[in-house]
Every structure is written in structure tokens, then in C-alpha cells.
Simulated assay, not measured.
Amino acid sequence: MPSDHLCAYYDSGRCRSCTLLGWPYERQLAEKQRSVEGLLSAHPGLAWLPPARSAQLGFRNKAKMVVTGTVEQPVLGILRPDGTGVDLRECPLHTPGIAAALPVLAEFVTRARLTPYDVASRAGELKHLLVTESPDGELMVRFVLRSTEAEARIRKHLPALRDRLPTLRVASLNIQPAPKAVLEGEREILLTEEQTLRMRVNGLDLHLRPQSFFQTNTAMAATLYRDARAWVAELDPGTVWDLYCGVGGFALHLAGPGRRVTGVEVSAEAVASAETTRREAGLERVELLAGDATAYALGAGTAPDLVVVNPPRRGIGPELAGWLEESAATTHVVYSSCNAQSLARDLAAMPSLVPVRARLLDMFPNTGHYEVLTLLERR
């Protein structure tokens, strides 16, 4: 499909974030598959499942909008290299609810007199708008501010915003005072009684707090968790660790009769989100802990039958890879990676854990990025 049928921003050159948007989708998938197979070519016995296909547009459940311009004419989008803004409120990647909400939020900036932050002069208050839509069409909106100066005005006008956006469930202020390229700060101020957004995935309500991470492509996240659940069901381990568990996507999907699952995540907010889901679902044999995944494994004294790892782009690193290599009791590892280069490096550090099955999931269509799920078996 020609690019001019997909995105006016791309065709006009105003935004080229989707670097592969000009390619037919079949070519995108084929190139990603070629890339990941090349990076994992040291493992010739690896069986590849067909790649999981994504919608090209309307899939992105989170908008991270830099706010520039003026109070009267705010710009929601990205920054050019010169520091000026490009308005992307009609970006076709976003889910329909986000696309409908962004113009309303732009009006709210004017109504609440939220001065956009100017990077060059370090003046202004509103830095970003972060908007997430759940599969049920509910919204979480976060205002990333330099200070709490605008809090009273935002609270005053919030009822009117909720009238305009009846699907708004969670609203918060995030305070990020640092004059540097950091998306959000540590302090969060909830403005609504509701504290979590329900991300309904495969019949499971995963709760998302403002500072919790969730995959930006809900359909691909659901496929990822279903695949992992099916692979683990074949093996039927008695004990499972989910390291880097986030809001519990893997851990809570893998819970089952007679199986004990432990999830470990450094973000206390994410663990609190996962604990809410665990409690609602009545999963008594799931334990969720806030802490460093590597430190937990090295200090545990025992090893489970199966370990799931879903690390950030840097991978699991030499310490955890070394521990997994030496933990003979762990017969299988399910590795979910958003960076096949670090995955290949980690696999090289675990030669007794042989990758036997893998699948590419097109979590980030129109870019060179993807997720790959790999099953490792001890030999």
C-alpha cells in the first residue's frame, strides 16, 4: 500500500518517526524476520513460528505528546531539532479514543491556562501530555508539569474535561522539574478517585497505574501472553519465576492449578498494579515482589522449574545470564525481548540453555523494532 494512503504527516515530511511506513507491510515483516534470524543464526536448530501480524494504523494505545506553542494555540506532538513543535494530534497510529481525545485536551490546555514549556528559555509549565486508552475505551491522562503551579486550575476545570471526555477514568499530574530530556518525574499526584486503568487482555483485567509500564500495542501484547501461556502449559512446570514482571502480564497469565508463580519487578507502582489484579482474580499461588530481578535470583538460594524474563532493551546482563546458566534445576526459560541484539548476547552467555522455538511479534509496525519470544531448553 503506498505511503500516501496512510499518513499525511509522513508524506509531507513533517514526521518520519515511522521509518518503514513507505514500505509495503509484507516487506516490513520479511525484513524484520530476516533481521532477527540473522542475529540468532548461531542457533541453527531454532524453529521459527510464523510472525504475529499487527494492524499498521490505529494500534498504539499510548500517546506521548510534547506540548509546545502557546496557551491559546498549543501544539501537541514532537520536537524538531531546532526545538519547535510539530502538531501530531491526528497521528493515525493512535487508537480511536486517543485520536478523539487529543483535540479536547488541546482545548483544555487553553481553558486551564497551561503554559507550554519552552526548552530554550526553560519557561512555562506543561511539558507533556501522556494519554493511554484501555481495550474497553477508557482513558488515563497524565499532565507532566514543571511544578504544581497549575494544580488548582487543573482541578477546577477537570469536571468540565470529564464532561467532554466521559471515558476519562484516571487523571494525574506528574511533576518533572529537571530541565532535561526526561519524559516524567518521580512525583505523581492523582486527581481522580480511580487509581488504575483496566487493561482487559485475554479475559484478565491488568491494572495500570500512572507510572506503570504496559506494551503500547494491546493486540500484540495479548498474543505475546497467549503464546507464552501455551508454551508453558506444554511444559507444565510446578514453579515459575517472572523476572521483570511489570504489571504482571506473564505472571498472571501463567498462574494455574498446582503451580506457584513469583513475579519480581523493580517498580513498586507496577507491583501494586499487579497485586490488584492478583487479588481480584483470586490467584492465591501467585506472589509479587518489588525488587531487582538479578538481586532476587542471586539471593534466592533455590531455582524454579521455569523462568520468564522480559528485560528492558539492555537485556538481562552477564550476572543473571550466568546465574541461569549455572541453575541446573531450571530446565526452561521463556525470554521476551524487544532488542534481538542484546538477546543474542545473553544467549551466548547461556550455552546450556538452547533456543528451540521463537516467534517475532510485530509490536512496533512501520519501524525496524519488534518483539521476539524465545523458548530455551536446557541441554
Score class of each variant (00 low, 15 high):
F108W: 14
A358G: 05
R16E: 12
K180N: 14
L165A: 04
T110F: 08
L197Q: 06
A268N: 06
S3Y: 14
V271R: 01
P159H: 05
L57P: 07
E284A: 15
C338V: 02
N61H: 05
W23F: 14
R155T: 08
A123L: 13
V286T: 05
T277P: 09
Y370N: 09
A219C: 03
H43Q: 05
L254D: 00
L320M: 09
D227V: 12
P237W: 02
P81F: 09
D205L: 03
K180W: 12
A222N: 07
R155H: 07
V86H: 11
E280Q: 15
T148Y: 11
L21V: 04
C15Y: 02
Q73W: 11
N61P: 06
S147Y: 09
P103R: 06
A274T: 00
V67C: 10
D362R: 02
R155Q: 14
S17Q: 12
P210S: 04
E151W: 08
A329D: 13
S3D: 13
A255L: 00
C338Y: 06
E37G: 00
S3H: 12
A99I: 08
V286R: 02
M140F: 10
A150C: 15
L235C: 06
Y370T: 06
R27L: 14
V372M: 04
Q211H: 14
P210T: 04
N310E: 06
V232D: 02
I175L: 15
D292T: 03
Y370F: 15
C338W: 10
P365H: 01
Y296G: 02
A328M: 10
E149L: 15
M220N: 07
E275M: 08
Y244N: 00
L130I: 10
D362W: 07
V182K: 12
V308K: 00
V201E: 10
P81L: 13
V333F: 06
P179T: 09
R313C: 08
E72N: 11
V356T: 14
E151Y: 07
V308H: 00
Q195L: 11
P318D: 09
A270H: 04
L129H: 04
S121H: 10
V86W: 12
A152S: 14
S35T: 10
G249Y: 00
L168C: 02
L376T: 00
A160C: 07
L88A: 06
S147A: 08
E265A: 00
A340R: 05
S35Q: 13
T374F: 08
D205A: 10
Q28I: 03
R378A: 01
M199I: 10
K32C: 02
E287C: 09
R187Q: 15
T331P: 06
V119H: 12
R209D: 09
D11T: 15
C338N: 07
R187I: 07
V309D: 07
V182R: 12
A300M: 13
I316M: 13
P257M: 07
G38P: 08
V261W: 03
A101L: 06
S342R: 03
P311D: 01
D242C: 00
E265F: 01
I316G: 00
G246Y: 01
L288F: 06
Y296Q: 09
A251E: 00
R278T: 01
L29P: 00
N217H: 08
L165S: 05
C18L: 07
A321L: 03
V354H: 09
R122F: 12
R164D: 14
L130T: 01
S35M: 11
V372W: 04
A178T: 15
G315W: 06
F143T: 02
A290W: 10
G317S: 05
V333T: 02
F59I: 01
T167H: 13
Y335H: 00
